[in-house]
């Protein structure tokens, strides 16, 4: 069972909500994904409006609502938005996104660290979206991040886990959960991240823009589960060359008796 800030999650698939063709399709996809953590961009919803399309659709099921600060250019903007979100929704959970470049939406490491520290002090449960930088992951953890969310590849690109060498180090070093976020474009990518030992993955574009988002959501649920099981079962080591069971041909020429 995945535990973040004392809350248990039986599903290790988190969902983003921004790109669905309708709230009805989004609701069906969420159902099919069985996910229990749903992130919503604060810029897209009106938390004070009870008829808000996305919020009223989400309100019908049980899940952890993870508002995100998408669009914030610096720590100040993100903090302000987070406080307003908490005041309007009552939740302290926050996916912190500080993305000053609206084109790549890559996270700003400096401002993310500043905002995380401040928001943790203010009592937020902060899950920062970050580049796959192991030292930054440690620093975010040190200032109280409840989990870290390194990107697999640039957001919306469906390129998979291109940052795997760094994510491996983050997984090895972190004591908070590691959620691979952004770039997961196919169930196989999600399974791969889970096999590496990621605690969860967050998916949006690959599901919302799929030919059939509901079927794709179910496919991701299976992939995440399979990847996790494989990680827990212990994957066999992969080796570059085939190893012969009696390596006569490669026998070393030596005088050492114990190698003879």
């Amino acid at each position: 069972m995945l535990t973040i800030a004392g809350t248990e999650f039986s599903s290790r698939l988190f969902l983003g909500t921004g790109k669905f063709s309708s709230s009805a399709v989004m609701a069906e996809a969420i159902e099919a994904s069985q996910c229990q953590m749903i992130t919503v961009a604060l810029r897209r919803v009106d938390l004070e409006n009870p008829d808000d399309d996305i919020m009223s659709t989400l309100g019908k099921r049980e899940y952890t609502f993870l508002p995100n600060t998408s669009g914030a250019r610096d720590a100040k903007e993100a903090i302000r938005l987070a406080k307003l979100a908490r005041a309007a929704s009552g939740t302290s959970w926050l996916k912190l996104e500080v993305t000053p470049d609206p084109r790549t939406l890559l996270p700003d490491p400096v401002e993310t660290l500043i905002a995380t520290e401040e928001l943790v002090k203010e009592g937020f449960i902060v899950l920062p979206y970050m580049n796959a930088d192991p030292i930054l992951a440690l620093k975010l953890q040190d200032v109280g991040a409840a989990a870290v969310m390194p990107l697999g590849s640039p957001i919306g690109t469906n390129q998979g886990v291109l940052t795997e060498a760094m994510i491996e180090i983050i997984i090895e070093q972190a004591h908070v959960p590691v959620v691979v976020d952004a770039g997961i474009g196919a169930p196989s990518h999600a399974a791969y991240a889970m096999e590496m030992g990621a605690d969860a993955v967050l998916v949006n574009t690959a599901i919302s823009v799929a030919g059939d988002p509901v079927v794709m959501a179910a496919a991701f649920a299976k992939a995440v589960e399979a990847g996790r099981s494989a990680f827990e079962a212990g994957l066999g080591q992969s080796v570059k060359q085939a190893s012969a069971s009696s390596p006569e041909s490669g026998k070393l020429s030596t005088d050492l008796g114990f190698l003879a």
Binding site: S21, S22, R43, E77, R80, L81
Partner: peptide, 20 residues
């Protein structure tokens, strides 16, 4: 827009970004 399978989006920003 809905008939074509797209979601009409009224809000994709927040005045609070500039509240300061």
């Amino acid at each position: 827009i809905r008939a074509k399978g797209f979601d009409p989006v009224y809000k994709d920003w927040d005045s609070e970004f500039q509240a300061e």
